[in-house]
Nucleic acid binder design. Structure first.
Lengths: 110, 110
DNA sequence: TTAACAATTGAACAACTGTTCAATTGTATA
DNA sequence: TATACAATTGAACAGTTGTTCAATTGTTAA
C-alpha cells in the first residue's frame, strides 16, 4: 500500500462559510483595531473611540457586528458598556496571526 | 515590583494593515474555497473552476488578487497554469483556523 | 424631574467589490 | 499557418459596506 500524502481533507460548506465570516469581520482595518483594543481586558466604547481617534457612533456600529458574531462580549457597568474579546479562542486566533506576521521573512510569503 | 499582567502589546499600523489585508482576502467565501482547493498541491485554473462549479473567468480574477498578495504562487506547465499556496506559512494560517473552528464548543465562542 | 453623560440606532451617501460577459493573449498541436 | 484549448483581461452592473450625521434610548447624579 503506497504512502498517502496529504489527502487534502474535505471541508463542510458550513465550516468554510463560518471561517469566511470570521475573516470578513476581521478584514476591516478599523474593526480589527477595535478588536485589538479590547483583546485582553474590557474597555468602554468611549475609551476605544478615544484611543483610536474614532467617532463614538462608528465604534458602536462595529461593536454591534462583532457582538452578533460572538467575537466580543458586552458587559454594562453603570453608564458605560465594556467590551472584551469573547473568549480565549478569539484571542488565540488574533495573537497567533500577529505572531505569524512577525516571523522572519513572513511579511508576505518568501 | 508588582507583577505586570498582559501589557497589551502595541501593534504597528503596518502590521495591523497587513493582517487586515490578509483577513480581507480570505474573508470572501469563493476566494477562501479557491485557496483551500490549492492549499496542498498545485491545481490548474480549470480544475479549480470545475471542482467548485465556478466560471473560469471568476476563478482567474480571484487568483490574480491572491497572487498579488503573495497568498498563492503561479507556475505554468504547458497550456495550463497551476496555482498553489505560497508557502507553509499560509498553509498553517488556514489549517490552524479550520482546526480552531472544529474545536468542541468553538462554533462561535462559548 | 431635570440635566448631563454614554451608548445605540436609523437613514443616507459614497466607495468598494464580487460577478458576468465578451474580447484578447498565450500555448501547443494538426 | 490555422485550430483548439487554457487563461487572462476589461468594462459594466448590482449588491454590499464603512462612514457620517442626527435623533433616541438608557443610566446616574443633582
Amino acid at each position: 500500500m503506497p504512502l498517502r500524502i496529504k489527502p487534502s481533507p474535505p471541508h463542510s460548506d458550513g465550516q468554510v462559510a463560518e471561517l469566511a465570516d470570521l475573516f470578513h469581520l476581521l478584514g476591516d482595518g478599523t474593526r480589527l483595531r477595535i478588536v485589538l483594543a479590547c483583546l485582553h481586558a474590557p474597555v468602554s466604547v468611549n475609551s476605544i473611540a478615544g484611543q483610536l481617534g474614532l467617532d463614538n457612533s462608528l465604534v458602536s456600529h462595529h461593536l454591534r457586528l462583532l457582538k452578533a458574531a460572538r467575537i466580543v462580549r458586552a458587559e454594562r457597568r453603570g453608564k458605560q458598556v465594556f467590551y472584551v474579546a469573547a473568549d480565549a479562542h478569539i484571542r488565540r486566533v488574533v495573537t497567533d496571526l500577529l505572531a505569524h506576521l512577525a516571523e522572519p521573512g513572513s511579511g508576505r510569503a518568501r
